[in-house]
Design a protein around this nucleic acid. Structure first.
Lengths: 207, 207, 207, 207
DNA sequence: GATGAATGAGATTTCATTCAT
DNA sequence: TATGAATGAAATCTCATTCAT
């Protein structure tokens, strides 16, 4: 904000600019077919300069995975504080599963594949899974307590179910360009609500 | 049948030997970190010889994807002819989701990522998805007719649900080395049965 | 001719069949872009069998050069015994420079390039040049003696001139697909006759 | 002009340094037996760096052919503006046919062979032939007009004759290491002068 | 004699990374 | 800080040649 700090350009901004560029490149051509030159060109920097912010190509991918994780955790955490769990939950589901651009889904396949080889990516993915699982477990338990609901499926299993459904939906989106995410969401959403124990006024009608 | 005629070595056997080796390599280090030298060493052949059977590295991956597709289609097709749909369905689910070695799941992530870049892999994956969806839709419809069951979810949506759950479970297995596939299967199986319309004697008990 | 010798197929025939195939391949794609597999396929033999007749690819090219040399020497030698030098000379010129298919010219460029690297090809080419030069020198001297002609250019220089003109014409044919060899021949032929000392009834008319 | 600005190294200089090295390599071992490593070593660069200036090995050869064409066109064009056609013509002939190092002739065989396979080289060679033919035709016509000479051979045919003789002489030089270019030049030069229509004081004496 | 599957050295090309400026 | 030319290791793929049958 101050003139004095405007010139040297905050390093975090640079990092983000690079990560944005990398994200675009990787979504377009995949991680392995994108070169550091490509990324440099995409963010209008010199190749050498990337190495001032990320120590290697792997570090760049890890940085991307890490930023995604942070952002997603940010999104997800808000529901724990929501006064209306149901609408907050649905909003989060829609945001994550329907509104997210398909490129993110494609990128996620890349990350899932990488996570089996690259220990750092693996650690980030597992950490995210672990956190998400914990948050959703707590969220389900809290929601049930709040509204006096019950269900034969314990909260941690509901959380597992959510993650399986979410990941499956992501994969379908990544795979089929014409996949109807909205329809799929309407298909799985009631199943999750049911597992949580939310009483559903009417069975989903399919005309 | 005679030893004398066995010598020229059937080409399909060679192809399969190479594909087996490639599968092991790719499962270990991923497609992009495995070299043709690695694959050659793994099947005790010379690098040049691989090119007699597969015209390029990409062709090798496509061959692997294609073989997987064929095998899976083989497995899945039997259920359409099953006299006892329920046990055949459960057997197929267990076979595919629980008994399949984790390496296959890891390999599948690789393939999913590839399918967004490599048109041939993409085509194979989409073809498989399409076939599986068709078979499962028909299977659900047939089962319902056979046993006079009904459900608000139309067969094609049930098929979509199965695929979402199956893919999600695969991804969880690939990601977490200690993921309990059996428990996850017990979690999602009743949901699918319910969507199909199979009457369930008792709610799934979780001890 | 005898039934007994017909079966094992005379080796020289085999060699020639291979050389014919090689000639077609080399004319089409050049020496360096033709593989031994290509040549084998072209003469419907197995690659390994080529090595029973030629010890290496280089040996095959040398064989081709050698056969060409022999054939050309055969053609050229007849003029020394011709009763009518003039018509024999013109016939030879037309045969070599106009009637020879363009592919031969293209092949010759290949050989000229090779002869600078491959000592054996070099030796064959130089031997041929030497022989041709000797024969033409003798032929010019003999012709002059026979018809009592004279010219300021000594026979060996006339021979040099013939070779320069012949090679130059070959190169033009090889280079330009629509090169008019007949017109070029009519352009250079009187020049050679003149150098030999043949009295020319009328200057070449160009309508 | 300042030392400080000289550092980024002008790309054209780099290209020329590479072309010089390639020329040496190709003259020594031929195009097909020279590797990019060889060329890189010859110009004291890394192999990868060559690809910053030439996109492929073929591109490098094409670059060489193109540079040769430009240089030769430069040499040849000056005669059209010469005040004394005769001495300019002789000087050009000597420069091109006698003073040019033999390596160039050897290289030219390589290029002639290449031009039949490599469309780009073919195009460059044909373009050069076309230009040379046009310039020499115009030159002969202009010379005749200037000095009121005449000859039964039309200018374009004289140009063809020059090219045939020139190419033939090149091939002889390339083939025989001890070929006497000077003697050959003295042999063909009067023939060309005669075809142009230049009155020759005395027939060439051969002692 | 003949086959053709197999070999493996070697060539072209790419690209993550460095470093002089 | 930033640049971008340069590096050089490594990967894919080719093909002359061999050899068991």
């Amino acid at each position: 904000m101050l003139a004095a700090t405007a010139l040297p350009a905050p390093p975090q901004d640079r990092k983000n600019r690079i990560l944005d560029a990398a994200e675009r490149c990787f979504a377009r051509h995949g991680f392995h077919k994108s070169t550091m030159q490509d990324v440099a060109a995409e963010c209008a920097m010199s190749p050498g300069n990337l190495y001032r912010y990320f120590s290697s190509k792997d570090d760049l991918v890890a940085g991307l995975a890490e930023r995604d994780r942070e952002r997603f955790m940010c999104d997800i955490t808000v529901i724990t504080a929501a006064t209306d769990p149901r609408s907050a939950f649905e909003a989060l589901g829609r945001l994550h599963l329907v509104e997210t651009p398909v490129e993110k889904a494609v990128l996620m396949m890349e990350l899932w594949a990488e996570s089996a080889r690259n220990p750092r990516i693996g650690a980030i993915c597992r950490a995210m899974d672990h956190e998400v699982h914990g948050i959703m477990t707590a969220f389900v338990a809290q929601w049930r307590r709040l509204e006096g609901m019950s269900s034969p499926t314990p909260p941690d299993q509901v959380a597992s179910l959510m993650m399986i459904l979410g990941d499956g939906l992501f994969r379908q989106r990544a795979s089929a360009p014409d996949f109807n995410a909205e329809a799929a969401f309407r298909l799985i959403y009631p199943i999750v609500l049911n597992a949580i124990g939310v009483p559903q006024s009417s069975p989903p009608e399919v005309p």
